[in-house]
Amino acid sequence: MPINVLFAAAEADWPTYREPLTRAFAEAGLDCALARDLPPDQVDYIVYAPSSAVQDFSPFTRLRAVLSLWAGVERIVGNDTLRVPLARMVDHGLTQGMTEWVVGHVLRHHLGMDSHITGQDGTWRKSVPPLARDRSVAMLGLGALGQAAARALAGLGFDVTGWSRTAKSLDGLKTDHGAEGLARVLRRAEIVVLLLPDTPQTRNILDADTLSLLPRGAIVINPGRGTLIDDDALLAALDRGQIGHATLDVFRTEPLPAEHPYWSHPRVTVTPHIAAETRPDSAARVIAENIRRGEAGEPLLHLVDRTRGY
């Protein structure tokens, strides 16, 4: 009897994922019937994205797990009708994409590339940046994405300190934690990168008070969650020069409304939520492995802790 897998994501995603999922199931030796429409009481697993019309999980009486295509689960983790295990997406393609985006923008600000790109007016502007070893970078968030980006920056020689809400000991990385640790990390961070999840404890983690701790002219880079930053506080800090520039990939409302002041602010770079996209081929293999594990009675990969929200 086949394993029934419901693909519950945006309709436009179906042609993109159908073949990679089918191929990954076959490679894993799984007899899966993948479909966009199945009777709820016959569904064993749901491959899910919050863009799906499926919001009530109570009719899925045979459901064994929900396997998210997204790294962020804040739009589903609080759903009271979801009573089965929920796994978030962690895959090599997504991690590599985030690492490349973070490293690219850290280097851009470290080297002062914007002044050369936009300043082609015949003026010879010569300024020599410090070496990476003399540039302090704070990585707020030490999950899979934060660790990968922090290690890549440390590998280039940057003085990287990672911060998390609870203590973590990571080979080759300096770390700190808790409220006092956050203050210590921010006070010396010339560049701060946010890769935290969206939880009640992390929302507005950069507000007027914490932004004021940063050295004057510090750079803020946010590819994590739009809710991590108090927008009004950031704009005020940019206006008075406390923050030198903000490069933002995520926002409370997406697409970012055309009238939002971020678009026109001279010290803000907006990128359209492109830092880390799920790659269908690699994501499909993660989904297939979790279904294999579920069928074998093994623990699922990347299982969400509902009490922590991620």
Rank of each mutant, 00 (worst) to 15 (best):
G157K: 07
A28F: 08
Y48P: 10
F251P: 00
S282D: 15
V192Q: 06
L238R: 04
Y310D: 06
L63C: 11
R133S: 15
G122I: 13
A148I: 01
R279K: 13
E11H: 12
P2N: 14
P255G: 09
Y262P: 03
R308C: 02
A283K: 04
D209A: 15
E27Q: 12
A288S: 04
R125W: 00
F251N: 02
D31A: 13
L196V: 02
L235F: 03
G181I: 01
L111P: 00
D91A: 11
L301Y: 06
G294V: 00
H92A: 15
R308T: 13
W124V: 07
D231V: 00
L206E: 12
A276T: 10
H265S: 04
P129D: 06
L186Y: 06
S282G: 04
R36E: 12
A71Y: 11
T123G: 05
P266I: 07
L145G: 07
V128N: 11
R252G: 15
D37A: 15
L30Q: 00
Q42H: 07
S127R: 14
R279Y: 14
L234H: 03
D207G: 13
H92C: 10
P20L: 14
G157E: 07
L196K: 06
E100Q: 14
T227W: 10
V192H: 01
I46E: 01
T22F: 06
A258K: 14
V103C: 01
V102C: 06
R151Q: 15
S282C: 05
I3F: 08
L301S: 11
T210Q: 09
A237E: 00
I76P: 02
F7Y: 14
P85I: 09
L34W: 02
A189L: 02
H92V: 13
E19V: 09
V185I: 11
A148N: 09
G162K: 07
I117R: 15
R240E: 14
P50D: 13
D80I: 08
P197N: 05
L67W: 02
E19R: 13
H265I: 05
A276G: 14
S164R: 01
F251D: 02
Q242N: 11
D281T: 14
R108T: 07
I3R: 01
P15E: 09
L67M: 08
G157D: 08
T161V: 15
V84W: 06
V84Q: 12
A28D: 08
R108D: 10
V185Q: 03
D207I: 06
H302G: 00
V304H: 01
E74K: 10
E19Y: 01
R216L: 05
A189N: 05
E100N: 10
P130A: 15
R306E: 04
A28L: 09
H265D: 12
P50W: 07
H245W: 06
E74C: 03
D114S: 12
G162D: 04
F57A: 03
A35T: 11
P2Y: 10
D207S: 12
I229N: 01
L256T: 08
L38V: 02
P15R: 06
L69C: 10
E254A: 02
R75G: 02
L140Q: 08
V193M: 01
G29K: 00
L140E: 00
E289W: 05
Q242S: 06
D31S: 09
T81G: 10
G122V: 10
W124R: 10
A246S: 07
D159W: 08
V43G: 03
A183W: 04
A28E: 15
A8W: 00
